[in-house]
Design a protein around this nucleic acid. Structure first.
Lengths: 208, 208
DNA sequence: AAAAGAAGGGTAACAGTGTTACCCGAGAGA
DNA sequence: TCTCTCGGGTAACACTGTTACCCTTCTTTT
């Protein structure tokens, strides 16, 4: 059962084709929204038949899963851009702002990731595990604050989850146009500050 | 241009048929999820041709809009079940719990209302206005707390919006299976308490 | 070296979707 | 009674995801 050179080349070739297809799908998602993600459209964009998508991704669900994970990968890349800081709390705040930034900069990806924008697709367990790892960054940011003593009153995962829920709610409603122009940003800041306040160690009552 | 008895009967008849169709759609949504909401399926359920849906609703979008508003109507009905209370803050807390209750009891409606579960459908401006009125209940609950002096530090709409964002985020992630079994309820309680704490007039630091 | 086997990929079909042009038939108005 | 308007059924259109069939190409075997 040796792997022949041909098989290797073939596999590499398939890998390249896979990337080309995935790139076309990403382009369609960002450019025209989830509605443009049809097997025929993507294969036409690439210049191959629909069959290729079935052999390489095992159907539309496989491609959807790849796109879903790509969304989290981009998300993580954006979160990693947040520079290190002396003050862990300031860094956490910048992370919270980066969360909204990403969602607003690529709302269709956000919809795919969190609002089931691809009808019929449901991420598998393994993918969910991978995707959730993105939030380890948030947990670590909270943990740093706990260690520095600027936050208290909960475990890192508890506080991180609470922050996540709040941010997701805000961003989710914003990209669904439930807020008026301009209102959203102020509300987001107020929400982040409010959620964090009860966990501040220096618990002055600050209502800004 | 008098309205004849026939026209009136006709219109009444159409109204009845409209309700029958809408009922079938509601049944399909609750019973089988948004995926079952196809024009053919609904008309088959009712026993008419697809054309009727087009004359009575002007296409699938019209029917979708009716379902969307129905979701908010049910939501409002659930929120109105929260009994009056001497303590406005206790009542507010029960309202927050009712929010999650509704979303968990009819997740497919919630998905339709807030996650765009009907592909291609986007609610019109007028419908959005009507839907948003549901949240007047929440604003009034917050306003009562402000008047009673148990909350402070923001306007009623500000605090209500912050609560809404937080609750929506929590519930939205929960029905999308991002939390483990049992975790969700505790997180929801922690979130509600956290968001509200900074606005409490009796600002003891209470981390429960 | 030639035949046999395996496998990727194109074509064209299937069943499903929303939508509509075309009809027919029933009631309104003359 | 004759016309005419209009609701509604049939059947088609252009889409969707998916797959059976076939051809080509490379590997393997004799």
């Amino acid at each position: 059962m040796t792997v022949t050179a041909y098989q290797q080349a073939q596999r590499q070739g398939q890998g390249v084709v896979r990337d080309v297809i995935l790139d076309a799908a990403k382009r369609l998602l960002v450019g025209e929204g989830p509605g443009a993600l049809t097997v025929r459209r993507i294969s036409a964009e690439v210049g191959c038949s629909t069959k290729v998508i079935y052999t390489l991704f095992g159907g539309k669900d496989g491609l959807s899963e790849a796109l879903w994970l790509e969304g989290f990968a981009r998300f993580e890349r954006r979160l990693l851009e947040v520079p290190a800081h002396d003050d862990p709390l300031a860094r956490l705040h910048e992370g919270l702002a980066a969360y909204r930034d990403y969602a607003l900069s690529e709302p269709d990806y956000y919809r795919v990731m969190f609002q089931g924008a691809m009808p019929g697709f449901k991420a598998g367990e393994e993918s969910v595990r991978v995707a959730k790892r993105t939030f380890d960054l948030l947990v670590r940011g909270v943990a740093a604050c706990l260690e520095a003593g600027v936050l208290r009153g909960g475990t890192a995962t508890e506080i991180a989850d609470v922050l996540w829920m709040a941010m997701h709610g805000a961003v989710s409603l914003e990209i669904s146009d439930f807020f008026d122009q301009g209102e959203a940003e102020q509300r987001y800041r107020l929400l982040c500050a409010s959620v964090l306040t009860p966990f501040l160690a220096s618990a002055e009552k600050d209502a800004s």
